[in-house]
Design a protein around this nucleic acid. Structure first.
Lengths: 208, 208
DNA sequence: CGCAAACATGAATACTGATTCATGTTTCAT
DNA sequence: ATGAAACATGAATCAGTATTCATGTTTGCG
């Protein structure tokens, strides 16, 4: 058995080859899409490589041409989710100068994304157990953006003063809870109503 | 206060014998405590029965005297977490008539509980993947209590009017996010500060 | 073309870990 | 004190499955 020195000093990721042809590209995409469906539906542990590859229509060995391990494909899905949802929100808030209005539009975009990609939502949640680093990276990226936005908005007088860290975490917690209502608890409350109620709370609080 | 008439049914579980002697009782408790530590630390899938029983100081077979399956012990832990945290909150809010003050005290109690029982916190989160029914039961019980409390408080004029379902979910989302800050992201922000910032937001919102 | 690299196959390997069971020990009501 | 029920043991079973590999097929460039 080959025992190459295993260390943490590998700068790049040459462990598996990136696809060099259109065919390889398509196959890798098919595996990723299948993994999203299968892992989203059955969970990480009950989703076997066999399930994923048969869903993708390729042989089991093909999986290891593009991914080093089962955890690897999972990590890529978490990263993909981060990219996609950030892109969705950025697009939805494009050109909105008022922070409150932007946050509202961002929440709406987030909930619509989650409803459209319930599998990705579950995968991010499961990352806390399968790939904690990816999980923390995902939420830290969001939290940093939120916090900076809140800090700027406070300076511009668009919102009241208050600890931006805690606020960022609280607002993310609200978004996540509402997303979970849609995906996990299968609430049929329309997204615009959820957003309106939540933003009334966020803007005005619940004091009489 | 939490009204608990909802689950008046005690589902019998004749699948395995309940302990009949003090000795059996102690052994079962030891296994449960070991399972909490091991599953909380390693996660459901990496926590083997062998790990749990050796941590408990009993033989592997002993596990199956008290639990039908590995999932079984996990479910009991989720139920235990629900009981304990509800008890903590009920105790902390005992005799507080003002809803806002009660919610604030409840949030503080929740965060203190979570900090004291990080393993149980992770177990409840993982229940979404290991035992979805237990997960939904856990959060539904909380949401129901929250919603009823908010509805009463609105009628009493203690808080403004607003959709109590969405508010309940949002408030739970905030509590959960702050708990995660403590346990997962290891924030060292003192709990009273977290609670103060969060309740300023909840009471007054962020409008200037 | 023609051929090297890229891609694909699926059976074989190697190992883990949940659950069972035959056997032994302790408890406690009588 | 005693025997039946309760409790405890841990080696054996048994199924699943991540990963490898030797072998074939396809692609695209010169």
């Amino acid at each position: 058995m080959i025992r190459a020195a295993r260390n943490a000093e590998m700068p790049q990721r040459p462990s598996v080859s990136q696809p060099k042809t259109a065919r390889g590209e398509a196959t890798k995409k098919a595996i990723l899409a299948a993994a999203e469906r299968v892992i989203g539906a059955k969970g990480y542990n009950d989703a076997s490589i066999g399930h994923i590859t048969s869903e993708a229509g390729v042989a089991q060995g093909t999986f290891y041409i593009y991914f080093k391990t089962k955890e690897d494909v999972f990590s890529e899905l978490v990263l993909e989710m981060g990219r996609l949802v950030r892109h969705s929100i950025a697009e939805a808030t494009q050109g909105i100068d008022d922070r409150l209005a932007a946050e509202k539009a961002g929440l709406q975009a987030f909930l619509e994304f989650v409803q459209a990609h319930p599998d990705l939502y579950r995968i991010v949640q499961e990352a806390l157990f399968v790939d904690p680093e990816a999980y923390q990276a995902y939420y830290s990226a969001f939290a940093d953006g939120y916090r900076d936005g809140l800090t700027e908005a406070a300076l511009a007088g668009q919102i009241s003063a208050g600890d931006p860290d805690t606020r960022a975490w609280a607002l993310m917690g609200i978004a996540r809870a509402l997303g979970e209502q849609l995906v996990v608890f299968k609430s049929d409350k329309p997204i615009p109503e959820l957003v309106a109620s939540a933003y009334d709370l966020i803007e005005n609080g619940i004091k009489p």
